[in-house]
Write a protein that binds this DNA or RNA. Structure first.
Lengths: 245, 245
DNA sequence: CGAGGTCTTGAGCTAAATCAAGGTTAGTGG
DNA sequence: CCACTAACCTTGATTTAGCTCAAGACCTCG
C-alpha cells in the first residue's frame, strides 16, 4: 500500500525554473485569469515555477503550510495516509487546478506528482495579499472551493454507497471530464496506477483490476494497455455511474 | 432506507417568523459576524427567519437554488439520494453553520430538519450583493468553505478505509466538537436517528446499532437511552478515531 | 390500548478483502 | 545490448466483515 518509488527518488526531484506567464499553457484556466494583466506580470518577480519528477513530493502531510500551487502540467495526487498505511487519494489535480489553500496551519494530506509535472508556486503571504487586493481573485477561489466541495460530496456518496463497478464507471467519466478529453476522442490516458485508483475509490488493487476486466468483458471499454482506456459504450458507462449528472 | 416521516408531515412544516438579529443566539458564530453592525440591522428588512418542524424539508435535491441559510437553532441534515433510495447524509448542520452556498444552479442534496430547527434565510441575490460589498464577508465564506472541504476529505478517508467501530468513534468525537459540548460534560445528545448515522457513515442501521453496543460492552461509552451517549473512556475513543486530530 | 416507528439482536449469506502466484513491463547495471 | 530485478497488473482460491433477512422489545402517539 505504501509507495516504494516515493522513497527511492528523494533527491533532485524538484527543480525550480523561471516563471513565464505570457507563455503559460493554462493561462485562462488558472486562478491567475482573475487577476489584472499587470499584476500577473509582476507575479513573475515574486512567484516561481517548479518541475517535478514522477512521484516527487510537493508537500508532506503534517508539515506547516507555506505555499499553494497552481498546476500547469502533468498531474498531482492529494493523499491522506493513516499511521498504519491505509491510504486515501482525496483527489487528482490536473492543469488549471489550484491546490494547497486551507484554513489549517499544517497540511492534512501530502501532494505528490503522479507523472512528471509542473506547478506555479504561491507563497501564502503573497496569496493573502492578492486576495486582499483583488476581490475578483478571492471570488474565484471561493467559486472553486464550492465546486470542490460539491465534488467531495459526490465522492462521499460514491465511497459510501456505490458498488466497485459503479465507482469505477463514475471515476472514468469524472476523470475524462477533468482532463477535458474531447467528446469525439474515445481513448483517454490513465496517468495514475491501479493502486492510486484503488486508494481513490476505497477498494483494493485486485478489485479495481477485476472491475476493469469485467467492464472490458462486457464490451463497455477496451484496454489497449493498462494506462489507456477506450470508451466503447458510453451509455452503459453513464448508466453505471449514477452519481455524476 | 427512505424516510416515511418525511412524507407524513408535508404541510405547515415551515413557518416564517420575523428576524431579530439583536437577540440572535448565534450572533458571533454566524457569518453575519463579519458584516458591519448597521448592515446586520438592515438585514432584518430583507431577510427572514424560518421555523422548521422535525423532518421538514428546507430544500429538495433537483430544485433550483434560490436561498442560502444560516442555522440558528436545532439541527439540519444534508442528504444526497440515489434513484434507488441509497442515501448519503453528507453532513449535519448545527447552529452557526451556513448552508446552501453552491456554484451549481440546482441543489445537489436536500436539506432537512433533524429536530425542530430555526434558520435565517438569505436570498441568493442579496447574498451576492453582500459578498460584493463586504470583502470580509466573502473572506469568511471562503474560510468556511475551506474548513468544510477539509472535513469532507476527512469523511472520504473515513468512508473509504475505516472499520465501523472507527467510523462511529470518529463520528461521536466530531459531532461532540461540532455541537460544542463542554469538556467537563461527559454526556451528549444524539439528535439524529440510527438511520441518519448509518447513512452518514456508509453503514446499515444494524451495524451502527451493533457498534454502539460493542462500544458499550467495552466500557467506552454508556447509553442512558438511544438518543444520549456518555463518554466513559475518551482515550479509547480517540484511539479508535485515528482520523480526527 | 393498539399501531407504527425505532432500536436491538440473532442467523445466514455474499461481495469484497486477503492470500497467493504468474505474466508483463520498465528500469538498472554489467 | 542484454540479463536481472523490481514494480505493476492480472487472475484464482479462500476467508471474512458487514449486509440482508427476520424477529422481538421498547416507546410514542393517536
Amino acid at each position: 500500500m505504501s509507495n516504494p518509488a516515493l522513497a527511492r527518488c528523494r533527491h533532485q526531484t524538484r527543480t525550480v525554473v523561471p516563471l513565464d506567464c505570457a507563455r503559460c499553457a493554462v493561462r485562462d484556466l488558472a486562478v491567475c485569469a482573475s487577476l489584472p494583466a499587470p499584476e500577473v506580470e509582476s507575479l513573475e518577480r515574486y512567484a516561481s515555477s517548479m518541475e517535478l519528477q514522477a512521484n516527487a513530493e510537493l508537500a508532506r502531510s503534517g508539515q506547516p503550510c507555506r505555499q499553494a500551487y497552481s498546476v500547469t502540467g502533468g498531474m498531482l495526487r492529494l493523499v491522506r495516509t493513516l499511521p498504519d498505511a491505509r491510504r486515501q487519494v482525496v483527489g487528482f489535480a490536473t492543469p488549471g487546478t489550484f491546490v494547497g489553500l486551507s484554513e489549517v496551519a499544517v497540511h492534512r494530506h501530502s501532494i505528490e506528482a503522479v507523472v512528471p509535472s509542473r506547478v506555479c508556486v504561491f507563497d501564502l503571504d503573497m496569496l493573502r495579499d492578492l486576495r486582499n487586493r483583488y476581490p475578483a481573485f478571492e471570488h474565484t477561489l471561493l467559486e472553486r472551493a464550492c465546486r470542490e466541495l460539491d465534488d467531495a460530496h459526490d465522492s462521499m456518496l460514491l465511497l459510501a454507497r456505490l458498488s466497485p463497478m459503479e465507482r469505477l464507471a463514475s471515476f472514468l467519466l469524472r476523470l475524462r471530464r477533468q482532463m477535458k478529453v474531447r467528446d469525439d476522442e474515445p481513448t483517454m490516458a490513465l496517468p495514475m496506477g491501479r493502486g492510486d485508483i484503488a486508494d481513490h475509490l476505497g477498494l483494493t488493487v485486485e478489485t479495481v483490476s477485476r472491475s476493469f476486466t469485467r467492464l472490458r468483458e462486457q464490451g463497455v471499454i477496451a484496454l489497449p494497455d493498462p494506462q489507456h482506456v477506450e470508451l466503447l459504450d458510453r451509455a452503459a458507462l453513464a448508466e453505471l455511474a449514477t452519481v455524476l449528472h
